[in-house]
Design a protein around this nucleic acid. Structure first.
Length: 508
RNA sequence: GGGCGCGUAGCUCAACGGUAGAGCAGUGGCCUUUUAAGCCAUUGGUUGAGAGUUCGAGCCUCUCCGCGCUCACCA
């Protein structure tokens, strides 16, 4: 049974009062002739038109949520907010009748949805306002919104008073956050625009958008722990995908030359300011391309999205001025580590030798780490923090890249790059391994096993190998955490701020 | 999981170990061009939960719960 606060009980009583007067507090239908912005624009257009002796009257029926009410005896001012913005309502006893004005003052609360009819005029202080001749309750708000009050200073600066700020509450009750913080709505409009621009860019270049299974019998394409579920009728465990990679590359075998997918990946790992258990991933694969071509496509794509969404290639992120204008800086991993860590990884072909070299720097890597993991450690310790401007870090160690093609003449290195921006990884791409024999060997090196009944071992994806054996064209592939791109373009430090409903511990 | 920090009215925040407060919201009243409207009055609290120290705990100690930041983990 819901427990109501004293504030809610007052509002519930108003619902009762409405019903007692034969008025439905939650009517089925609403009508509107203009949005708030349309009404203001229509009025301003008529106002500017000097061809008529007297400006034509602009009548409007508006809807929205009550966000401010100022009662002044025989008149009341209010503001409503709709999808387009805000507009002021003016209610006067002369025009409405005292009973009707009293009814408004008595029944309506902040947060209620209202439909108001009247004509548009400009108040003495110059605000375009609806002179209300009639109004109707559209939906009563039982609970008061976590109130935010705005103050517009003479400089035009908006100061929000008593805004909803508690980070947990804002994420948990995103509906309330959205209702009272307009800039949060803007973040999600930007998010939609970014997704639209990404699709547009890829569609224009002949990529086919596809959808592959979220429920997978064998997960792969990344190193992450999966979520496990179970299909009752098939009597089989299934995994929520951690990547789309292996399914998209099967499509290249099927002669679809350029494919992409935008969707959710699920990783059963720690939650942090840049990790959510489910997140939006973009992957594309392009037959006959290598990682250098994918690099060019990447910088073009991100710059395209920036231009489309923000109208510029320069972005301020957490105090950094980032410039996404191509070409981005290219940095060979070996060279970058020479410069920042003072270690030439090519001089250390074994984990033992590299481990000893790292120890001399005073850092303490995991003693069990493979050579690749040690290099990864060096990158995150020395290199990553220095990569603020968009940078392609390329040529990765082979043993941490089981799906990438080796670099000719360098068996320890693969043709792979990651783009770093503002110190974090934005995307990951490589010349894809298309040799089924090499691929099988790599899987075996990773500890994949043909005995699928062994709980500890990750089973071999035999179907993927079978697909490869039919022949996979040489191709370049790309994966990007879309949420991180959105963080960059909306200047948000936490992934939670760009997800409508981020993962949180359940209440109670 | 580790470290640091936070949790007080619907919202934003105060309160030296000594009577739990303010603004906004709410309620009642005045007010016919306001816009954080104003003025007068007023309601609202198991100070996250529990235990302890103390004459006395919002404050100190412990346990638990929740959250934030951060580190670790995350090819």
């Amino acid at each position: 049974m819901t427990e109501y606060t004293s504030l809610e009980k007052i509002r519930l009583a108003k619902i009762e009062a409405l019903r007692a007067e034969g008025i439905e507090p939650f009517p089925h239908r609403a009508e509107r002739t203009h949005t708030s912005a349309q009404a203001i624009a229509a009025f301003e257009k008529v106002e500017k038109d000097t061809s008529q002796a007297a400006p034509a009257e602009v009548n409007a029926m508006l809807v929205g949520r009550l966000r401010a009410v100022r009662q002044m005896g025989k008149i009341t001012f209010a503001h409503i907010e709709d999808g387009d913005g805000r507009i002021q309502l003016f209610l006067r006893a002369n025009n409405l009748g005292e009973d009707k004005l009293d009814f408004f003052n008595r029944i309506f609360d902040l947060g209620d949805f209202i439909q108001a009819t009247g004509f548009i005029f400009r108040t003495r202080t110059g605000e375009v306002t609806l002179h209300v001749q009639d109004f109707k309750m559209l939906a009563k708000a039982v609970s008061p919104l976590p109130a935010a009050k705005d103050e517009t200073t003479e400089a035009g600066q908006v100061i929000r008073h008593a805004a909803l700020e508690d980070a947990d509450l804002r994420a948990r009750q995103r509906y309330a956050d959205l209702a009272v913080n307009p800039e949060v709505r803007q973040v999600f409009r930007t998010r939609a625009a970014i997704l639209r621009a990404l699709r547009q860019f890829l569609d224009e270049r002949g990529f086919l958008e596809v959808e592959t299974p979220i429920l997978q019998p064998i997960y792969g394409g990344a190193a992450a722990r999966p979520f496990v579920t179970h299909h009752n009728q098939l009597k089989q465990d299934l995994y929520l995908r951690i990547s789309f990679e292996l399914y998209l590359k099967r499509l290249l075998v099927g002669n679809l030359e350029r494919v992409y997918e935008i969707g959710r990946d699920f990783r059963n790992e720690g939650v942090s300011y840049k990790h959510n258990p489910e997140f939006t991933q973009l992957e594309f694969y392009s037959a006959y391309a290598d990682y250098l071509q994918v690099m060019e496509l990447t910088e073009q794509m991100v710059a395209y999205v920036a231009e489309k969404v923000l109208g510029r290639c320069k972005v301020t992120y957490q105090g950094h001025e980032l410039d996404f204008t191509p070409p981005w800086q290219r940095l060979e991993m070996r060279q970058g580590l020479k410069e920042t860590a003072g270690i030439d990884i090519a001089a250390h072909p074994t984990a033992e030798s590299l481990f000893a070299a790292i120890q001399k720097t005073g850092r303490m890597p995991d003693a069990q780490a493979t050579r690749g993991k040690l290099i990864d450690f060096l990158v995150s310790e020395f290199l990553e923090p220095t990569l603020i401007q968009p940078t392609f870090l390329y040529d990765y160690p082979r043993d941490i890249s089981p799906l990438s093609k080796s670099k000719p003449g360098d068996p320890l290195t693969v043709e792979r790059f990651e783009a770093y921006v503002a110190g974090f990884e934005l995307c990951n791409a490589f010349t894809e391994l298309n040799d089924p024999l090499d691929q099988e060997q790599r899987f075996l090196e990773m500890g994949r096993d043909y005995k699928a009944d062994d709980e500890e071992k990750h089973p071999m994806d035999e179907d993927y190998l079978r697909a490869m054996r039919y022949g996979m064209p040489p191709n370049g592939g790309f994966g990007m955490g879309v949420d991180r791109l959105i963080m960059l373009f909306t200047d948000k430090h936490s992934i939670r701020d760009v997800l409508l409903f981020p993962q949180l511990r359940s209440e109670e």
